[in-house]
Simulated assay, not measured.
Amino acid sequence: MSLIATRVPEIQLENVEMRYQTDTAEVLALHQVSLDIAKGEFVSLLGPSGCGKTTLLRLMADLIEPTGGRVTVAGKSAKEARLAQKYGIVFQSPVLYDWRKVKDNITLPLELMGVKKARRDEKALELLELVGLKGFADKYPWQLSGGMQQRVAIARALSMEPEILLMDEPFSALDEFTRERLNEELLAVWSKVGSTVVFVTHSVPESIFLSDRVFVLSPHPGRLSAIVDIPLPRPRTAEMRNSPEFFDLIAGIRDSFEGV
């Protein structure tokens, strides 16, 4: 069975704004975004290009600071959470080092922390099995498909056993068949590790299939347009994508967009 998120807030945003100064004007990228994400919950940030999804994720990760409002993680600042290594991050590109074997890419964070090699190798094998890449420890990234490389990136993000997994459109560059398969595999991994997951996507079906809730963002400037509960039972199956309930959720989310 999959995890059932408790209602204990893990991530909280209060009236968050983000402004950028360009050569010609100040740009308001995010406007008054407030939301709570529960511990152990899987949520998606959904919206069209330019609505601020990635900016919102970067604010949660303390990669940038908001120009207004507040971001808290388990009652502490985003910076404190980052320094406490609560985050694992998966980007749109796997960002693997071609000259390092798969197992050494996965355990790079542990290596930087001074973990002994024997333990690093043991952890790499555990994670490779978790993400369905058993037997690929001594391969190099260039020997893997795009989908396999992203699984390595997910394994690396999990190497520090993060409480929160932040994922920025990790499957957007993949073909539809590979993407759907990795959606299913990601949920299987999530059900075992128990992390809170924040997943950025511009795909309505993907957000529905993965999530407990979907935060819909509208652009110009980015703002929270709707919060949609996804009542589909877990574990999710491929057949659910063809159900009337699934198509009703797609229609409902599309109707919730403002100014698109």
Rank of each mutant, 00 (worst) to 15 (best):
D121Y: 14
A81Q: 13
G68H: 07
R58K: 15
L158S: 10
K192W: 03
L217P: 06
S191G: 14
Y97H: 11
A38W: 06
L187Q: 08
V90Y: 03
A61T: 14
P244F: 06
Q150L: 08
D168P: 01
S77E: 12
G68W: 13
I37M: 07
A226K: 15
W190C: 11
V8G: 02
A74T: 13
L57D: 05
L63K: 12
Q85C: 01
I64C: 06
A137H: 05
G135Y: 09
G40D: 05
R58N: 14
G52R: 02
A173D: 05
P244G: 03
W190T: 13
I253F: 12
K116P: 06
E65T: 14
V204F: 10
E14T: 13
E169H: 00
E65P: 04
E111S: 14
R119M: 11
L127G: 02
M1C: 11
L3R: 02
E80T: 15
T237K: 15
A173G: 03
R179K: 07
L35Y: 10
T67D: 02
L158N: 07
I250T: 00
L130C: 12
F136V: 06
A25D: 15
L3C: 00
A251W: 08
I154R: 00
L110F: 13
A25I: 05
E122I: 04
M148C: 08
P109T: 03
T237F: 11
Q21I: 09
I253M: 11
V8A: 09
G68T: 11
E169C: 02
A5F: 05
A118Y: 06
Q92I: 03
V200Y: 12
D168K: 04
Y97G: 04
Q32S: 14
E161L: 02
I106V: 15
T24I: 13
I250H: 01
A173C: 04
G135L: 08
V228M: 01
S172G: 11
I230L: 02
P219M: 08
E17K: 01
A226S: 14
K134I: 00
P9V: 04
K139C: 15
R234S: 00
S218K: 01
S172F: 04
M240S: 09
R179A: 07
P94Y: 04
A251F: 10
E17T: 07
L166F: 07
L187A: 09
A84R: 05
L30S: 02
E65W: 10
L45D: 14
A74Q: 14
S145Q: 11
A74G: 10
E126Y: 07
E169Y: 00
E185R: 07
L110G: 12
L30M: 03
A153C: 11
D62H: 15
V214D: 04
A78K: 13
E80R: 14
R82C: 05
L83F: 07
G68I: 06
L108Y: 14
L210V: 05
D168E: 09
G194D: 10
P94F: 04
E111H: 11
G194A: 08
Q143T: 05
V152Y: 12
D104W: 12
E180A: 13
D36K: 06
V197K: 09
R151G: 09
